[in-house]
Design a binder for these strands. Structure first.
Length: 457
DNA sequence: AGCACA
């Protein structure tokens, strides 16, 4: 039944070509790890600075006997294995290979993602950050933002070597106390690499700087310490309108792909770009239209609606602060329909061209203002999902899943269904929409779709 | 000083 009767740590371990090293100094670099181990054989993979204290590592030898020779050597040696004067304890790992050694944040680049732990955004000024990181080379640009992980900054150096030296020196360290307000306690820096290569700083402000362009305009709304939301006539917070919508997908029981988003949002006009990403444990998507008007219509029409009947994949929309997304043209999480004829895409996929790796690992990859999206409204229209449960509306639209009592897990019916006889594709609703008192169909006020649904191309 | 979650 269970293997939990096995002791967590065994004193006699099965040899493995993967060794587990502990009590390493947290500064230990991969190079030092390799220096320690390579006398015993060929190292094919490493994983350095793991564990909560970043003081453990894994080393994988090409051959089991090489790992055995290292363990045997230090088992009988009077000189313990050491790194930077610290004794390193070596055991066989309980795994037999190192998998996926490089996480995205470990792939070196010229832009660092810095998380400043235990501080509020106002505690550490951008000038302090600039000062600290300038010790390692010219800092081109800085963008700061707040998100769930805390106060973060993207810091752009000239090259990966400079960025790497800053990371190696500062990761796990603290900003000097004299640079911080009195009330700030510890202030540890966690540093990884961003996928960015060039930050797009729009304004000099309290949260972003471009040191390569002193003539960049100062954002008048960002001079003060806190961005003031504009207040609408009803006294509620009002987001500035934008041609880019931020969609938060609630109750995402079923896969929401780029194609699904594209189909849904294309009902209101040309969708230029899409990016899907995870944030705060939920799924969000940025959808770019050519103009604000189209976005406004889509926002009004789709807010609170569900992609699937039964309360699944409910959409909440707000305006993004983006005006032009910078996305990979084709990935499983993003699409840029402006760079190439979208009709070529399926052909390319069939031909088996490798999909580019997803870069949208997090919101940083999505935007220069990663923390600046307005949070989706917490309150949602009250609605009883059970009201229409068991009668998925998509069946009445497509009729291709007779007897199926649950939505498809990947491809929505409307994406693959043939157009029902006797009806124009343009008159069909783009998707299943359920909301009290609202019939599925083209939302009131929406312009006729600018182009046919993509399944009829 | 005791096993990685990207």
């Amino acid at each position: 039944m269970s293997t939990s009767s096995q002791p967590q740590f065994r004193y006699t371990q099965t040899p493995s070509k993967v060794l587990h090293l502990r009590n390493l100094p947290w500064e230990c670099t991969e190079e030092e790890l390799i220096e320690l181990c390579k006398p015993f054989g060929k190292i094919v993979n490493t994983k350095c600075n793991v564990g909560a204290n970043r003081n453990q590592a894994f080393v994988e030898f090409a051959d089991l006997n090489q790992a055995i020779s290292m363990v045997s050597y230090y088992a009988s040696s009077s000189e313990p294995a050491q790194v930077r004067g610290k004794t390193v304890y070596i055991q066989y790992s309980n795994r037999h290979e190192i998998v996926n050694n490089k996480s995205p944040g470990d792939v070196p680049g010229n832009v660092l993602l810095v998380t400043i732990e235990g501080v509020e955004a106002g505690d550490v000024s951008i000038d302090v950050i600039h000062l600290v990181f300038s010790a390692f080379g010219f800092v081109h640009k800085i963008a700061t933002f707040e998100k769930a992980a805390g106060f973060q900054a993207l810091i752009q150096f000239t090259d990966a070597e400079t960025a790497s030296s800053a990371r190696n020196a500062l990761d796990g360290r603290s900003i000097p106390r004299y640079l911080l307000p009195e009330h700030v306690g510890s202030c540890h820096l966690r540093i990884s690499y961003s996928a960015h290569t060039d930050l797009n700083i729009k304004f000099q402000s309290h949260r972003s700087r471009d040191y390569t362009n002193p003539y960049l305009p100062v954002n008048p709304t960002a001079i003060e310490g806190v961005m003031q939301p504009t207040i609408g006539p009803d006294g509620k917070k009002k987001e500035p309108e934008s041609n880019v919508l931020l969609a938060s997908i609630e109750n995402m029981q079923y896969a929401v792909t780029v194609d699904v988003i594209h189909t849904v949002f294309s009902a209101f006009g040309t969708v230029q770009k899409i990016a899907i990403f995870e944030k705060n444990g939920g799924t969000q998507a940025l959808v770019q239209y050519p103009d604000v008007t189209t976005a406004a219509v889509a926002k009004e029409a789709l807010e609170g609606h569900c992609i699937y009947d039964g309360g699944y994949c409910k959409l909440h929309l707000s305006y993004s602060r983006h005006t032009d997304l910078n996305v990979k043209a084709y990935s499983d999480k993003s699409r840029d329909y402006t760079v190439q004829d979208p009709s070529l895409l399926p052909a390319q996929q069939i031909l088996g061209l490798p999909a580019p790796p997803a870069v949208w690992q997090n919101h940083q990859a999505a935007t220069m203002y990663p923390g600046s999206e307005y949070a989706a409204p917490a309150q949602v229209p009250s609605w009883n999902p059970s009201a229409q449960a068991g009668t998925p509306t998509y069946m009445s639209v497509a009729g291709t899943f007779p007897g199926q009592s649950y939505p498809p897990s990947s491809i929505p019916a409307y994406a693959t269904a043939p157009t029902p006889a006797g009806s124009s594709p343009l008159s069909q609703p783009p998707m299943v929409m359920t909301q009290p008192g609202v019939q599925p169909g083209r939302p009131a006020g929406a312009s006729p779709p600018g182009h046919p649904p993509y399944y009829v191309r």
